[in-house]
Amino acid sequence: MLSPLGASLSGLRAGLEKLEASANNVANLSTDGFKKDRVLLSEGVTGGVVVEIGKSTESGPSYRSPQGEVIEASNVDLAEEAVEQILAKYTFSMSLAAFKTTDEMQKGVIDLLA
């Protein structure tokens, strides 16, 4: 079993990785053929958060270039990424609150034992 501090740290890391993936997606919004990163968060075997990052398989919208070629645009949706960034913020904030609470509880136990 993972310690409460370890579980909180894995949540902080998950929030950061989720935000980094979304920021990368937004940065490549106008890159033709770019496939967005998908982040899947799950519970680890011993507790904590496990992050899996993979590429989306959805195709982006197509358009015709001035030369007549059909080009696939990026499949990144800016509105979806805004929501993902808000979720990443709350994931990080909740994990930080759990970390602070665990730290305060451990200090309280040390004060009782001292």
Results as ranks from 00 to 15, higher is better:
A82P: 05
A97T: 13
S8W: 02
D77E: 07
N25C: 00
I86S: 07
E81N: 06
K89H: 12
K18C: 08
P66W: 02
A88T: 02
K89T: 12
E81K: 08
T57Q: 13
E20Q: 13
K100N: 14
G44L: 10
V49P: 13
K89G: 12
V51R: 02
I71M: 13
G68A: 01
A7S: 14
D37R: 11
E80P: 06
A98Y: 09
P4L: 06
V50Q: 15
E72M: 04
R13D: 14
Y63L: 02
N25S: 01
M94P: 06
T102Y: 12
K89S: 11
L87W: 04
N75Q: 04
V39L: 00
G15S: 04
F34L: 01
L9A: 15
A98W: 07
N24L: 12
P66I: 04
S10C: 01
R64C: 04
E80W: 06
V51K: 02
T31G: 00
A98N: 12
V70I: 13
P61H: 10
K35C: 10
V51G: 05
V39C: 00
A98R: 12
I71P: 10
V45M: 11
G47C: 07
P4S: 09
N28G: 01
P61S: 12
L78Y: 10
A14G: 03
T102M: 08
V76W: 00
V49E: 11
E84R: 07
L87C: 00
Q67F: 08
S95N: 03
G60D: 10
L9P: 08
E52G: 08
A23C: 03
S10F: 07
T91S: 15
K35D: 13
N28A: 01
G6A: 04
F99V: 09
V51T: 05
A82S: 13
V50L: 11
N28W: 02
E20I: 08
K35V: 12
G48Q: 02
S93P: 06
G44S: 09
D37G: 05
F99W: 12
T31M: 01
N28S: 03
N25F: 01
E58W: 04
E84F: 02
R13I: 12
D77K: 06
A88N: 04
P66C: 05
S59V: 11
V45F: 12
E72C: 05
I71K: 12
V39D: 01
Q67H: 06
V50K: 14
L40F: 08
P61N: 11
A79C: 05
A98E: 10
F92G: 10
V70D: 08
L87P: 03
L12K: 06
S74I: 02
A23Y: 04
A21Y: 00
P66D: 07
G15Q: 04
A27I: 11
P61L: 10
I86E: 04
E17N: 06
S10M: 07
E17P: 07
G54Q: 12
S10P: 06
I53G: 03
S59E: 15
